[in-house]
Design a protein around this nucleic acid. Sequence first.
DNA 1: ACTAAGATGATG
DNA 2: ATCATCTTAGTG
Length: 202
Amino acid sequence: MSTDWMDLPASAVDEAARRLLGWRITANGVTARLTEVEAYSGLGEDPASHAHRGRTGRNAVMFGPAGRLYVYQIYGMHFCANVVCGEAGQAAAVLLRAGEVVDGIEVARTRRPAARRDTDLAAGPAKLMQVLALTRTADDTPLFGGGPAALTPPDAPVRSISAGPRVGVTSAHDVPWRFWITGDPTVSGYRRHTPRARSGRP
DNA sequence: ACTAAGATGATG
DNA sequence: ATCATCTTAGTG
């Protein structure tokens, strides 16, 4: 197994997501094995994607070459990371939703005091980032060579992959582009999108 | 300039 | 079910 997911076209970002399961991401002394990911595509085809309305300052990295990180901030306080996929010029990325901490678990525990069990250390996209101590500064950095985070291939092949609708997205509930390792205790679990209360008139 | 909404997490 | 909290992008 090599970095074969990097050679897939943007139109096959869902397949790239499947192949990323089991890979390990290392940053700041902690390594996590990816157990849950979500695919996001580009223009028109994917209303849930940040790139749906075209290239902007935030999502520009999604249009770049594969193998780099796309990090964005959400709800003013959390960070989420994507692995950019597909050829340059086409928007595609895979959101890293959850992982199993396989190295540096002591550090990980201090970074996530709220986690009761070790399986909850990185059971969510922002939790994973917290464990890896990555923020916006990791945006647009390479995952192979020189960057703050590095990807390494799976130790053992992934047994079984499950698929379902993506978490927290308002649209495109019909497309099952969330993938996870079947039965793994570290997956974040499905939660329906909860719209925040309006500020305006009652 | 102003504003709305968001690929979430913690807690009750 | 609710709050914390602020960048981004869309609109005037």
